[in-house]
Design a protein around this nucleic acid. Sequence first.
DNA 1: AAAAAACCTCTACACTTGTAGAATAAAATT
DNA 2: AATTTTATTCTACAAGTGTAGAGGTTTTTT
Lengths: 123, 123
Amino acid sequence: MKLSKTEEQVMQYLWKLEKAFMKDILTEFPQPKPATTTVATLLKRMIDKGFVNYNLYGKSREYYPLIKKTDYFSKHVNGLIKNFFNNSASQFASFFTSETNLSVTELEELRKLIDSQIKEQKK
Amino acid sequence: MKLSKTEEQVMQYLWKLEKAFMKDILTEFPQPKPATTTVATLLKRMIDKGFVNYNLYGKSREYYPLIKKTDYFSKHVNGLIKNFFNNSASQFASFFTSETNLSVTELEELRKLIDSQIKEQKK
DNA sequence: AAAAAACCTCTACACTTGTAGAATAAAATT
DNA sequence: AATTTTATTCTACAAGTGTAGAGGTTTTTT
């Protein structure tokens, strides 16, 4: 099961806030804010899909994500990789470095990261 | 305008084949193949969306993509980056290296690529 | 030429998504 | 306590998607 674009947006807020009441979520939305009922519908759907749950405090619900952002995201990226690069992450990586416009600084940072990854894995 | 998941699949075949008659596209699909009419519908929608066009050879159409895979893909990835990493490609990159499981060899390859990118940009 | 296969458009239909009003209940404010 | 605000569920509806049949035309095969 997958979240739709807008549901993903709500998810982002939940990941950011960790726990949130309806009100908090609405606060996060930029103008023009959607109707409360819209967000309520989304949350309900997300609960149905198993991505969100809530705790009851008295009678108000404090919503929280059931999946970690990184987990959700890896699945996402892996789907992308599978879809576009015949499942080759390295092919994707090479595409990525050449096609997104990272600055030299960012590239150097990235190289540093890769180096530490390599060291990590060689252990 | 965006392609749906299945349309993307057809697009993949078109990118691979470069040009293709209906028959060629159907051949690409793994079992169980969709009905011809299904693919026809998809192609029509893709034409409407402006992603595909065709040449007439006698009375049969040879379909071809109007957008390059890399172009389509960068848009895609950039959307992803915007969505998940507040528009920071480097943040995405760092996530990417740590969360996808690239082997040491692949990482080293990637580092090589980055190095040449850096050189490229410093010119 | 007759039959079979291929292909295109139209139509259809169920499911998902974006969006929100109506109705209701509960909570907060005056 | 009365009013206003907030939250929740139901209902709704248009647009998009996955899937394919019916009908018509063309091309290929027998």
